[in-house]
Design a protein around this nucleic acid. Structure first.
Lengths: 163, 163
DNA sequence: CCCAATTCAATTGTGTGCAACCAAATGTCC
DNA sequence: GGACATTTGGTTGCACACAATTGAATTGGG
């Protein structure tokens, strides 16, 4: 039918199964992490994606929505309601930039900034829960970053999908 | 990178940053995979979680909802609407077990079973998009499985009523 | 046999994640 | 100056993911 690919000496059945398990294990690991975070972040009143936003703000200070989206790879459809919830919780404020009225700048409030100290207690627990050494995690991070870069590139190329 | 602040003992700052990047990279990789799958599965009319369900059905035939949840680590709150959509699409049928009226058995239809052949074209593309060798993926899978097991164990121990 | 605990799926509510569309502000060309 | 495309954030609709609750069916104890 379509283009014939010439993979290695691995039978297609195995490829399908291996591939399945890879993607599934990634999916599962992500949810397992999320689950552990959920418990630890509950005290702070944050979800994991909200925690990611706060990490950016703690490190860089006020940040435009555009840049938050670029750093976290999230679009406005995800960020807008998320930021509204963070603002409703009193952790951030949103203001339109005076220089460019299209841009909205997100800034941590005093309460949001204060959260940082309590959040600092979380990483050691996550490390412990992961049962990995620092080196293992560092290596895993590098692999995942490369994998994501490849997938992103493939998605950008393969997306226009001629049919 | 190269943000060496304190050459002394492993500072909490570094732990926080490393930890952040690990979890974030996992999160990002999972979404990147999902994005590639979204494009490839669009032709089949499946989402990635629906594809996971079909994989189980293709391999094991009719399966109770309970077992689907166990295999995919999803609860009824996620599976019920998902299976309803699969049924509405004509890929599966759901029937209450005659022996235990509480249990619902999910079975692929002829149309759902036929989908398997078209789905077999996907894994090679995913492999290519990942830019990884089989060995790399195998190793990654093993690491992620161990990581998930650790996280699950930690969640089960730390979750119930911390008081 | 009856009642209580348990099991199993469905439902409800909240929070992402993303595609598609929209409106306002800005930039660019004539 | 005016028509145009582009940038930027917001909104809507759909689909997970999960906690908590509900309700029906089964099981076990008396």
């Amino acid at each position: 039918m379509t283009t014939e690919v010439e993979p290695t000496a691995v039978p297609e059945e195995d490829l399908l199964r291996l591939d399945t398990q890879i993607c599934f294990s990634l999916h599962a690991a992500s949810r397992a992490f999320n689950s552990v975070y959920r418990v630890l972040l509950k005290d702070l009143g944050l979800t994991y994606p909200q925690y990611l936003v706060m990490l950016v703000l703690w490190e860089h200070g006020e940040t435009p929505v555009k840049e938050l989206g670029a750093r976290l790879r999230l679009d406005s459809g995800t960020l807008s309601p998320l930021l509204k919830r963070l603002e409703a919780a009193g952790f951030v404020v949103r203001e339109r930039s005076s220089r460019d009225e299209r841009s909205v700048v997100v800034r941590p409030t005093a309460e949001g900034a204060a959260l940082r100290e309590r959040a600092a207690l979380i990483p050691p627990r996550i490390m412990a829960a992961s049962g990995c050494t620092v080196d293992e995690l560092r290596d895993l991070h590098a692999r995942l970053a490369r994998l994501t870069a490849s997938l992103d590139a493939a998605a950008r190329q393969g997306a226009p999908d001629p049919r």
